[in-house]
Design a protein around this nucleic acid. Structure first.
Lengths: 155, 155
DNA sequence: AAAGTTAAGGTCAGTTAAGGTCAAAAAGTT
DNA sequence: AACTTTTTGACCTTAACTGACCTTAACTTT
């Protein structure tokens, strides 16, 4: 049971830092973080790329060279309508399962949908469900996700 | 001839673990289990597929890759859940759109799901969504509906 | 000022560690 | 014998992690 995923630890650490920051923004150095977690620096990039994307509601800015840094900011919550529009834009004709999951998770953490609703939607876009429909799973999932967002949106 | 069926042993083992878990949910690794029972890993999938389905009252979630796991949860038992079980039974491998709609409507009038959740589910099983996936829409819808009911059910 | 050095962060391909799928062989049942 | 269930193994996909190599910026030296 002791499968400590380094990536998960780093994710938690960054989120804790963010939670403590009143501005919702932190600045840190990739190398220092890597030293702290005794890992290779590119591990940090992996974590950022898999858990702190725009879809997850985060913005990463950085600067190279001497005195370089990573700035991670939590994007401010919009209204359900705004977010929905963004999501429609992003989803387009096709979404992967992880992207869909990130979007739903974001809706939940923004408090726009309940935990139950989140689970509902996650279930609907899960790979197990999608693979039942032999055809282009991603295309189908996109239609599904959009329809569900629209449903929650409806007054 | 009292041959010991490996699958039965694995089933018993998992159920014992579940019984000991206060949350009704356990997380384990397929490989470790396979090593424990000295069998091929895919044997675990067989057991899960034949004895831990939604109809049996279990929900399987999993994650691949490094640090992957199998999460097995027992769906809560009670009168409400009886209904869910009935629905799984009724839905089976395939449902029409009107049947699916009726099922959802029933869940709503029984007070088991909220109006929003109902709309969510209706949206998901709507014909427009389903026909996006050219293949057997009814089969797909069945899987979808079952997964969603399970999702709302889960504690 | 130009060149060199050092201190960052970025990319990407490769390795390892999981779980998933499927079809065929084996075992058991009727 | 025919049928069903179980078991196996070859092959696949995904996630985590690593290291070699690249780019950019600041600092130092000539």
């Amino acid at each position: 049971m002791v499968y400590i995923r380094l990536s998960d630890e780093i994710e938690k650490y960054i989120k804790a830092l963010l939670a403590q920051s009143p501005s919702g923004e932190i600045e840190l150095q990739r190398n220092s973080l890597a030293v702290y977690f005794r890992c290779v620096p590119s591990q940090i990039n992996y974590v950022l790329a898999t858990r702190f994307t725009l879809q997850h509601g985060f913005l990463i800015e950085s600067r190279r060279g001497g005195g370089g840094y990573l700035r991670i900011s939590r994007l401010p919550a919009g209204t359900l309508e705004e977010l929905a529009r963004e999501i429609f834009e992003f989803v387009g004709e096709s979404v992967s399962q992880p992207d869909a999951a990130a979007v739903i998770k974001r809706l939940e953490t923004e408090g726009l949908i309940s935990v139950r609703e989140s689970r509902l939607m996650q279930a609907a876009v899960s790979s197990e469900v999608i693979k039942e429909s032999s055809s282009g799973g991603n295309r189908m999932r996109a239609a599904l996700l959009k329809a569900m967002v629209a449903a929650v949106l409806r007054r």
